[in-house]
Nucleic acid binder design. Structure first.
Length: 215
DNA sequence: AACTCCTGCAACCGCCTCTGC
DNA sequence: CGCAGAGGCGGTTGCAGGAGT
């Protein structure tokens, strides 16, 4: 059994109070982010470091854009989800002022339902009511077997196969270009390279996927 | 008005990855 | 190279508030 991230006794849990928020803000303004484990004690907070980090990143950071998602943000999330799967931090990285938690929540509460209501399987972005690009029963079976053998949880490869399989429909919005220059951190670049390898993309040059997106 | 059900979101948990030694 | 500690991430939970009956 793994050791807990911090001593569980003597730490507050649940919703943050205004005083706690203020302490965290004041401390980070004075000392900057980093060393989350020692931060609570230094800031006089009875919280674990992870909790402080989460609170700051998801709620207190000054550059956060709060409120409803714009239509273009929705589009981008759907496109990126088709490309990356549940890589919420990568997706959030493309949406200035949005956090991975926010994007994840928005996906689970709004976008997933929206896609389902349009007859699209939110897991793999395929039309769920009729199989795409299968002209005969045998082709459909073959397709089904292929999906099955890929495994349900392999969302990245699944999303990628969706890119391969689906022929463009008339009202699709297909404009998505991701170039390495937009990956701001080394970590993101590494993660993107990893996901490229997973999906069998060797070159890290511009990706211009063809994804099903309905407007 | 009271109750139940549903929805959205903040926060937690546990695993994975990275980094320094 | 292997280990341990810290940070980061995605999945899940729990609660508050709104909608419906």
């Amino acid at each position: 059994m793994r050791k807990p991230c911090c001593e569980k006794q003597d730490t507050n849990k649940g919703a943050w109070s205004k005083q706690e928020d203020q302490k965290l803000i004041d401390y980070i303004r004075a000392h900057g982010e980093g060393c989350w484990r020692s931060l609570p004690q230094a800031a006089g907070l009875l919280r674990c470091g992870k909790s402080c980090r989460l609170r700051w990143i998801n709620y207190l950071r000054p550059d956060l854009k709060r409120g409803n998602f714009a239509e273009d943000e929705e589009d981008l999330i759907i496109k990126l989800h088709a490309l990356l799967g549940n890589r919420w931090s990568l997706i959030a990285g493309r949406l200035p002022g949005r956090t991975d938690n926010e994007v994840k929540n928005y996906w689970n509460s709004h976008l997933r339902r929206k896609l389902m209501s349009m007859g699209i399987d939110p897991k793999n972005h395929r039309l769920s009511q009729k199989l795409p690009s299968c002209r005969s029963k045998s082709q459909a079976n073959e397709h089904f077997q292929k999906v099955k053998s890929n495994g349900e949880n392999d969302q990245v490869s699944d999303a990628a196969s969706c890119v391969d399989d689906i022929s463009p429909l008339p009202d699709l919005n297909l404009d998505l270009t991701i170039t390495p220059s937009c990956f701001t951190t080394e970590r993101e670049k590494q993660q993107q390279q990893k996901s490229n390898v997973l999906r069998g993309i060797e070159s890290t040059s511009a990706l211009t996927p063809t994804l099903p997106l309905f407007r």
